[in-house]
């Protein structure tokens, strides 16, 4: 077998949780996991959309306990390994220990791009538990290159083996991705990853830019199922990267089959770029705010785009879903005056 040029990590069962309103069933997870395993994906992620411990009123309760889903996914895999997301401040170390008991082999510890130092204990624990341990810098458009390098060095010092540039808002353009990945390649010895969102229809172009700048971990989701306008579409990415001459190690027909025969039937809506998805990319807003913003706009009778632009102006960060309702309510009050 030819050596893989990089690892494609599928996030359908984690980022897709946002688009599914955290209602994945055990059967959906089992079927998707089997398909990913058969197609040759090395790692895929299973967690609440907001990571371990994310089940809440703030983000939405999980329909099925994520530990059950992790266990179900790990149970059907011959080769693929299950990754989990952990956002310190939401999930805690015990959640990671539980996930490992359920079968997780990789942890991605995520912080806002400027706040890496809250993750030291969780990254250390990931290594201690023998997991492939990743540091995930979210909302990477909100910091300049120098800051990202500084924060990546912190992750590296805690023991991270891979560091991700995460375009949570789908805001970055290809030259900005190139700039960030290249700078990290030069300054840290970890492997570098990229996670994109398609709010400005740039996810694939950004992914290609990341690979060409040296990224060796690349995220995608089947049928693009993910927060906001979704992620880079895994099965399309396999085709594009093969055409560019890379070895993905993933079988194109098999990955297409799981996307179209397993995932597409349970999707609640097509993963297209809607008005609010576009505005998220345009104003730099965390992609998982999408459905909450639509709900708040409806409840308070205001334009969802106005809410999103205001959230961008306020520099809201990931996890601040409560602010959406606060902003919508204040707009409604102003409107009534």
């Amino acid at each position: 077998m030819l050596q893989r040029s990089f690892e494609i990590l599928d996030v359908t069962l984690r980022d897709g949780s946002h688009a599914m309103k955290h209602a994945f069933t055990e059967q959906q997870v089992i079927d998707t996991a089997k398909g990913l395993d058969q197609a040759g994906v090395s790692y895929f992620e299973v967690s609440h959309g907001d990571g371990l411990g994310g089940s809440s009123l703030q983000y939405g309760f999980s329909k099925v306990d994520e530990l059950k889903l992790i266990e179900a996914a790990a149970g059907v895999c011959k080769n693929s390994k299950v990754s989990v997301l952990l956002i310190p401040g939401i999930g805690i170390k015990e959640d990671l220990q539980d996930a490992v008991k359920a079968g997780a082999k990789m942890v991605r510890v995520a912080t806002h791009v400027t706040e890496a130092d809250v993750a030291a204990q969780h990254i250390a624990l990931g290594r201690e538990l023998g997991l492939k341990t990743v540091g995930f810098l979210m909302m990477a458009h909100m910091a300049d290159v120098q800051k990202i390098v500084e924060q990546a060095k912190l992750f590296e010092s805690y023991g991270a083996e891979v560091i991700y540039v995460t375009d949570s808002a789908g805001y970055l353009l290809p030259h900005e991705v190139t700039e960030r990945i290249s700078a990290l390649k030069q300054s840290v010895s970890c492997e570098i990853g990229f996670h994109g969102h398609n709010n400005l229809s740039m996810a694939m172009a950004n992914t290609v830019a990341a690979v060409e700048a040296g990224a060796t971990y690349i995220d995608g989701s089947l049928r693009a199922l993910g927060a906001g306008s979704g992620n880079t579409q895994t099965e399309v990415m396999v085709a594009v990267l093969e055409r560019l001459g890379y070895q993905t190690g993933i079988d194109l027909y098999s990955i297409m089959d799981v996307a179209n025969d397993v995932v597409a039937p349970f999707m609640q809506r097509p993963q297209e770029i809607t008005g609010s998805g576009l505005i998220m990319g345009y104003s730099g807003v965390y992609s998982s705010f999408l459905l909450h913003t639509q709900a708040a706009a409806k409840r308070f009778g205001v334009d969802e785009r106005d809410i999103l632009v205001e959230l961008g102006r306020m520099k809201a960060v990931g996890g601040q879903e409560d602010l959406i309702y606060d902003v919508a309510q204040s707009f409604a009050v102003k409107k009534a005056l």
Binding site: S56, G89, H112, V317, D322
Partner: peptide
Amino acid sequence: KAIIILNPAEPPILMRDTVH
């Protein structure tokens, strides 16, 4: 259940708390 979020915006934001 408790969640904490750090926001680096400048000028710094006032503390916000939400109870659900």
